[in-house]
């Protein structure tokens, strides 16, 4: 344990010395717009004076591992991932995205526009897409909602898949590869802005939540000045023209650190499902 602490201190020292940070990104952010991620890291680098490099992970499990292995210093993750890794990776919340001036989002069940489905339960014996298995909105919420109705999702659908990406889930519905999907409301809104014509081909059949929005987390070991500089830079996004463009790309109006943050509902759902998985 002492070794780990020493190595961590040394790693922090080296990073601080070199003034470099790695920023982890998952499917919570739109992969289709990787440029937006680069623009964000460039903006943050400029504002903080610290070189920030983006690191992309396929799944929340992967980003969780990267945080635990300290391969990334701060990351844009799902609330569920934060809950899972906050102790193992020693994380704290740096900022939350605001949508409609609220740090909350929803889980949306979508289907093709012409589909007659009107709720999650309409997809019985049909094909359904989850995003990441550890995604709150894309996986945990629908599974939890079915479970609350005494339904085991593994047998409810004729087939189900994981796309590991909210946008891919939307595409899967539009293509007809799946009949329905559960996606993050933030991603869905971004998708509508990014691809309005294709977005018209899907409709929201059911909405769950509100849930605390997906946080930008930072390892506690990162220098407090850098953390504060990062937070200031994130807040500054909504005040700068370049920053507003970046925020539009994420589908949020700003980043901030609210006084009250509550991930207990998500945690409760995770625990409920853990029992199922067990």
């Amino acid at each position: 344990m002492l070794k780990i602490v020493l190595v961590s201190i040394l790693f922090l020292f080296i990073n601080a010395q070199e003034g470099e940070l790695n920023f982890g990104v998952t499917s919570v952010a739109l992969k289709q717009d990787a440029k937006n991620i680069f623009d964000l890291t460039t903006f943050l680098s400029k504002e903080t004076g610290v070189k920030i490099t983006p690191k992309f992970a396929k799944s929340y499990d992967e980003i969780k591992q990267m945080l635990e292995k300290r391969e990334v210093d701060f990351a844009y993750v799902c609330g569920a991932t934060y809950i899972e890794a906050k102790h193992s990776a020693s994380l704290e919340i740096l900022a939350l995205p605001y949508f409609d001036n609220k740090p909350f989002y929803k889980s949306l069940v979508i289907a093709r526009d012409e589909d007659e489905a009107n709720s999650l339960l309409s997809f019985e014996n049909r094909i359904f897409a989850f995003s990441d298995p550890k995604s709150n909105s894309g996986s945990i919420v629908p599974k939890y909602e079915l479970k609350m109705r005494g339904i085991d999702y593994r047998y409810f659908f004729s087939e189900f898949i994981h796309t590991y990406d909210h946008s891919d889930s939307i595409e899967a519905v539009i293509d007809g590869y799946v009949d329905g999907a559960s996606v993050d409301s933030l991603v869905f809104e971004s998708y509508k802005l990014l691809k309005p014509e294709r977005a018209k081909k899907v409709k929201v059949v059911q909405s769950f939540g509100e849930y605390q929005s997906t946080p930008i987390v930072v390892r506690k070991s990162v220098d407090i000045d850098i953390k504060l500089a990062l937070l200031d830079a994130l807040r500054k996004l909504s005040h700068e023209d370049d920053g507003v463009n970046i925020l539009d790309g994420f589908g949020v109006c700003r980043f901030d650190l609210p006084e009250k943050i509550d991930f207990s509902r998500i945690e409760m759902m995770m625990k409920a499902l853990d029992r199922i998985d067990d």
């Binding site: 094909i127 004729s158 087939e159 898949i161 293509d175 007809g176 590869y177 799946v178």
Partner: peptide, 12 residues
């Protein structure tokens, strides 16, 4: 498992 025309040839 996957067909390029999923509406006509769905999974399964």
């Amino acid at each position: 498992i996957a067909h390029s025309n999923p509406k006509e040839f769905p999974i399964g």
